[in-house]
């Protein structure tokens, strides 16, 4: 952008890694025979998330991420799929907690485990955008809860609203 030298904050928000996940989302092909389908919705900005989950031996064996939303919400979901697939649910829960902490406390040191998601740290400085980043994760937690309770609604779809 020749006409503007972005300020550091702005650069921190739209890191190249985020833009890359936004433009080329990972695991965006919906799983055809998912064990659980969890939908997330943020009525304030209209972001929509659809997660399709498969489980095997207490681990997330596969996960697809779809929906519509801003770059932050799309990148966050895309990065989440990379990080979560193949991990035991217990580990994923811990990661989710760490991610939430990163979003609510900008000064908190980011654990290495979070990998690429570290790129989203700058979002914590834009309070209006934090919910964009957390929507996919909150929807994932809802998907887990439903699996634990075994009480999936007909069609296996869980709805989460921010």
């Amino acid at each position: 952008m020749p006409q503007s030298i972005p300020e550091p904050e702005f650069d921190e928000l739209y890191r190249e890694l985020i833009l890359d996940h936004y433009r080329n989302p990972r695991h965006s092909e919906p799983l055809s025979d998912a064990d659980v389908v969890a939908e997330g919705y943020n009525p304030l900005c209209g972001d929509e998330v659809e997660l399709r989950l498969n489980f095997e031996n207490g681990s997330v064996s596969d996960l697809s991420f779809g929906g519509r939303g801003c770059s932050i919400s799309r990148a966050s979901g895309s990065m989440m799929t990379d990080l979560v697939i193949g991990k035991p649910i217990e580990d994923v829960r811990r990661l989710s907690e760490q991610f939430n902490k990163m979003m609510t406390d900008p000064d908190n040191e980011v654990p290495e485990e979070l990998g690429d998601l570290e790129a989203l740290q700058g979002v914590a400085k834009f309070p209006v955008r934090v919910k964009c980043a957390t929507l996919a994760w909150h929807t994932l937690e809802d998907g887990f809860k439903q699996r634990d309770e075994g009480g999936l609604p007909p069609g296996g779809v869980v709805r989460h609203e921010e």
Binding site: S4, L13, L44, C45, G69, C70, S71, F126
Partner: peptide, 21 residues
């Protein structure tokens, strides 16, 4: 381009618009 992203970029150009519902 989601309107929120557009709004953030425009803000950095000094342009105040509304993005949302």
């Amino acid at each position: 381009v989601h309107p929120h992203d557009l709004g953030t970029v425009l803000d950095h150009h000094g342009v105040a618009i509304r993005a949302g519902h």
